[in-house]
Design a protein around this nucleic acid. Structure first.
Length: 465
RNA sequence: GUGGGUGUAGCUCAGUGGUAGAGCACUGGAUUGUGGCUCCGGGCGUCGUGGGUUCAAUUCCCAUCAUCCACCCCA
């Protein structure tokens, strides 16, 4: 054992890797493409920002006393610069928005991004030190309609991905003034009860009292029984905004639950706050698939004008864990099985021609037995197999075998053999009479001229896909 | 950062104080060159690492590292 990847940072390869998520690279690409094509329909355009930012960007926006900033950032000093690997995407997006004066170029900006984030937490199921988010931000629209539209977009994204049992949790923190007022009220209520709180919550009380609300400790929940409600501290405008979000969601037919304990751990949020949680057990404790909310004062806080904003981030590893081994549609492919050196040389040329015709082609030039090659073709899920041996080569033909559509390949072989035997009465008789003939006598060994095969296969593949 | 579990074949895991096994996968054959099923054969291991106890340690003890789960926090 010489080297391994850094703790909590996983490789993504074409084959299944060790570690919890069952995702090979094709799963990632399928997910990313699904995300991109979905949000593009809602007018989102991609941004790409650096992985390194000045540390202060995050301490200022996320909050000095949050866990993310206090202990989870990969921060270092390079010459005089304090830099860190980005722990999330929203601050970078807002920074870029201000830096490039996007507000002066378009009234509303809808941006999405896709990429790795870094947090030095203890890894566990659904939580990694390098993890991947697909996120989006809308700058310049104060809502509440856009809030509902955004949530609807996420719900329909999950639907289109085939993820069942996702619930939308919704809350409102109110604007900065409302939130400060509530913080005081909660503090006044909880301080006398401090000794009854869990150790963690006693610490939270000093640093970020709102976080006591979503504590899992039973003693905390007991102490909170008669705590003031966040909703009662909302200003008139805040309450109207929150009601608007709910009204639009109802109009869209998007189900949601109001969760007064939903507060989230980043300081920049205000007003609308939401999470999409999985209800299945695949994710263990990390069941938040997507989180987001408004951050109406961040742009100004970063030196820009007063521009309202709302955003979200999806944890891609968690999506992949939830999807599990769900089958992806593989593109139809052709497998070329040559026998002998001369045939292999011809097969390589054939492969080039097929690829030039746009067909996904494997040429098996290992020199293994035909049986081995056919097994491999079957395992790869090839749609067509071209067998090219000495005799075919001499006659200028190639055997074209149709291994059937992918769905047929999923059937158990027994069923297929029965189905095939029933379809072709010669099969049974042939097998008994001349077993040494094998499959060669079955049906017509479909041979096609070498010169036509590329054309034929390309057309068949085109029709199949 | 705190608590617990697990490290044995490529993968999933059994197992024993006398230097190791199964299933899957891979591969060869049963069919001179014809897949999926079946049957027969084959290779594969620093038993995580270091130390200790012992005639002998993969097994017992200690340490260490890795990994997983949970707390915390978040996507």
């Amino acid at each position: 054992m010489s080297f391994r990847s850094v703790q909590g940072m996983l490789d993504i390869l074409p084959v299944k890797t060790k570690g919890e998520y069952p995702a090979a690279i094709e799963h990632w690409r399928a997910l990313e493409q699904a995300f991109v094509s979905h949000v593009a329909r809602y007018g989102f355009a991609e941004i790409r920002t650096p992985l390194l930012e000045y540390t202060e960007l995050f301490s200022r926006s996320i909050g000095e006393t949050t866990d993310v900033v206090e202990k989870e950032m990969y921060a270092f000093e390079r010459h005089r610069d304090h830099l860190c690997l980005r722990p999330e995407g929203t601050a970078s997006a807002a920074r870029a928005y201000v830096q490039h004066s996007a507000y002066a170029q378009e009234p509303v900006s809808r941006w999405y991004y896709l990429g790795p984030m870094f947090r030095a937490e203890r890894p566990q199921r659904g939580r990694y030190r390098q993890f991947h988010q697909a996120g989006g931000e809308i700058f310049g629209d104060a809502g509440p309609a856009v809030d509902a539209e955004l949530i609807e977009m996420l719900v329909s994204l999950f639907q289109s991905l085939g993820i069942e049992g996702v619930t939308v949790h919704l809350n409102s923190l109110g604007g900065d003034a409302s939130r400060a007022r509530y913080r005081e009220a909660l503090l006044a209520y909880l301080t006398p009860l401090k000794s009854q709180l869990s150790e963690d919550s006693q610490r939270r009380l000093e640093k970020n009292p709102l976080r006591v609300l979503d504590s899992k400790a039973p003693e905390d929940q007991a102490a909170l029984a008669h705590a003031p409600r966040l909703g009662s501290c909302l200003s008139e405008e805040d309450a109207a905004h929150f009601a608007g979000v709910q009204r639009y969601l109802e109009a869209l037919g998007v189900p949601f639950v109001i969760d007064p304990t939903l507060v989230r751990g980043l300081d920049y949020y205000n007003r609308t706050l939401f999470e999409l949680k999985a209800t299945g057990g695949e994710l263990g404790a990390q069941n938040t698939l997507c989180g987001g909310g408004r951050y109406d004062s961040m742009v100004k806080g970063l030196g820009g004008p007063e521009v309202p904003a709302i955003g979200f981030a999806i944890g891609l590893e968690r999506i992949l864990l939830t999807l599990g081994e769900r089958a992806l549609e593989a593109p139809p492919r052709v497998f070329v099985a040559p026998l002998g050196e001369a045939a292999t040389a011809r097969a390589l040329r054939l492969g080039r021609e097929l690829r030039q015709a746009g067909v996904h082609t494997d040429v098996d030039a290992r020199g293994n037995s035909l049986k081995s090659m056919l097994r491999r073709a079957s395992g790869l899920g090839a749609r067509f197999v071209l067998v090219l041996g000495e005799s075919e080569l001499a006659r200028g033909v190639v055997q074209l075998k149709d291994f059937g559509a992918p769905s047929e390949a999923q059937l158990s072989s027994g069923q297929q053999r029965q189905a095939r035997g029933a379809a072709d009465p010669r099969d049974a008789g042939q097998a008994r009479g001349a077993p040494s003939e094998g499959d060669r006598g079955v049906g017509s060994p479909p041979e096609v001229p070498l010169d036509d095969v590329v054309h034929l296969v390309a057309r068949a593949i085109g029709a199949a896909s």
